[in-house]
């Protein structure tokens, strides 16, 4: 998925090359201004129609939610849980499925096709953690797996917790009795 969305990287690379050529005259062949480079890079970008991407994201995202709905129905009717209590085991099962698919290399293939459709559901969160863990396995369990597991998922947790803290603070200050 990183390959498909590496536009930002290209942009940064472009400015670095441009400043080098301006400063040292060492890269004479690259006589483009940053603006020209950006236009050039745009023509070389693989064209992925935004509409097609959105349709794919909608379909796969919706399908994953249907699977989630089916799993939660199993917990509600099979294990006689309340709808809210069924939420946590449903998420856990989805994460297990996502981890297995990531190990088999299937999830990354789906992600390449579906874009945000497979990244936004909670399965994408698990996929980012699992693939980081697998990728850095060679560096050891502590420094590799332990230290890198939250490389992508960490920002989600940090910003989620900070946002939740401030929402809680607003409730506390204004004395709202919510939920």
């Amino acid at each position: 998925m990183d390959d498909a969305y590496s536009f930002k990287d290209h942009q940064e690379e472009g400015t670095i090359i441009a400043t080098k050529s301006a400063g040292q005259n060492k890269y004479k062949k690259m006589s483009m201004s940053p603006k020209e480079y950006q236009n050039f890079a745009k023509t070389r970008e693989p064209s992925r129609s935004i509409l097609a991407n959105c349709v794919r994201a909608f379909l796969i995202g919706g399908l994953i939610c249907i699977v989630g709905q089916a799993i939660s129905e199993v917990f509600v009717y099979g294990f006689h849980m309340s709808r809210t209590a069924a939420g946590s085991p449903t998420v856990a099962v989805l994460i297990l499925i996502s981890v297995i698919l990531t190990c088999l290399g299937v999830y990354d293939k789906i992600a390449q096709w579906a874009g945000a459709g497979s990244a936004v559901p909670v399965t994408g969160f698990a996929n980012s953690m699992c693939s980081a863990a697998l990728e850095h396995r060679a560096e050891g369990l502590v420094l590799g797996v332990g230290a890198n597991m939250f490389k992508l998922a960490g920002s989600v947790i940090v910003f989620g917790v900070v946002a939740a803290f401030f929402v809680g603070l607003v409730y506390l200050i204004f004395g709202i009795e919510g939920h």
Binding site: G61, C65, P121
Partner: peptide
């Protein structure tokens, strides 16, 4: 579930 879940993914896309 399909429409709302797909819609949120569409926003992400």
């Amino acid at each position: 579930a399909f429409i709302v879940g797909g819609g949120i993914c569409l926003i992400g896309q």
